[in-house]
Design a binder for these strands. Structure first.
Lengths: 188, 188
DNA sequence: GTCTATAGTGCGATAGAC
DNA sequence: GTCTATCGCACTATAGAC
């Protein structure tokens, strides 16, 4: 197995399998490496820690989000620019990826350690989005508030999408959540 | 030292000192226990893990928040009830506690591990707030959205308060942040 | 690729309070 | 004497150093 290609992909696949089979806590890094035909040492060459094996790839999402925010019309108000970013994210959440997303979400929900990691990834996304808003001329604290609110909308939309893949898809869920937030803010 | 009173308080004080002196990562649990005149084993009797020594007491804040939300006038819309909760929280952030809060915040800012823990504590607060809203008859996803938005407002207000203790205090910062969020949501 | 430090746990012993 | 906080030790897994 030693020089088979895609060591990282094999490690990710092995990790997902084992986490589903025996649970996250009951799986050691050595177990994952063994199933992938590699050693523990190699695992840590690819992933900074055990949790990270489930989160690699989030930088791409952040980039897509930021690019869409940056390219939104200059006259678009902050939350409208955020909505463009969310819809760019939505492109990643297609029907084909639904199964993987749901399995991954179930694993994360089973472990506080993994929830912590998820939250800090979302916080990093929010920080990047806030920076993109500031680059558009939005001041503080408006930029941080708009970015965090958008991530909240994303979390709600994502958890609904995972629980029930409606035919209208992720985009509609995002729009509904954002509308609900606007309605809440409009109430006295 | 074995039977001196307030072992937990001594451990917390020792931890804060050492984290400020040498940094969080460079401090071992054995170091903290030694300075408090106790052993590593005793540390773990009081705190589930090393990070937790900086977060004990957050349950009280959650309770205060939830109580205020529950007691808000029945006709108050969701975000108004959340505002009541935030102001109840604000009672804990007085001028006397400012120094401690700032030191603690600086330590947390220095370590990703601690930031993760802070985020999950805030998420727990948001979940409790959402439950309090549902008990008031607010449906989903409105309850989750309103609760998360309120925690966002809290984070912004808190970070501004830590950076600069203005005479108007925490309450004014909360109100300003919430007003800004409402303004953002009102824009097309 | 091995070797080590540290976090965190289980269990039994012990010291002091009452 | 009992009760309980603390301790000592042995152990595993993560993570990083050499």
């Amino acid at each position: 197995m030693r020089w088979l290609p895609d060591a990282m992909g094999r490690l990710q696949a092995a990790a997902l399998e084992l986490f589903l089979e025996r649970g996250y806590e009951a799986t050691t890094v050595a177990d994952i490496a063994e199933r992938a035909g590699l050693t523990k040492r190699t695992f840590f060459r690819y992933f900074a820690d055990k949790r990270e094996v489930l989160f690699i790839g989030s930088e791409r999402l952040v980039e897509a989000f930021v690019a869409a925010v940056t390219q939104a019309p200059a006259e678009a108000p902050p939350l409208a620019a955020m909505e463009a970013g969310l819809h760019a994210l939505g492109d990643s959440f297609t029907a084909e990826r639904h199964r993987f997303a749901a399995e991954r979400a179930a694993i994360i929900a089973s472990s506080p350690e993994l929830q912590e990691r998820e939250l800090i990834k979302l916080a990093a996304m929010a920080a990047a989005a806030a920076a993109a808003l500031r680059a558009r001329g939005v001041g503080e604290p408006a930029a941080t508030l708009a970015a965090d609110a958008a991530i909240t909308v994303f979390r709600v939309a994502f958890s609904r999408w995972v629980a029930d893949d409606r035919p209208e898809g992720f985009r509609a869920l995002t729009r509904e959540s954002l509308d609900t937030l606007r309605m809440l803010a409009a109430a006295p």
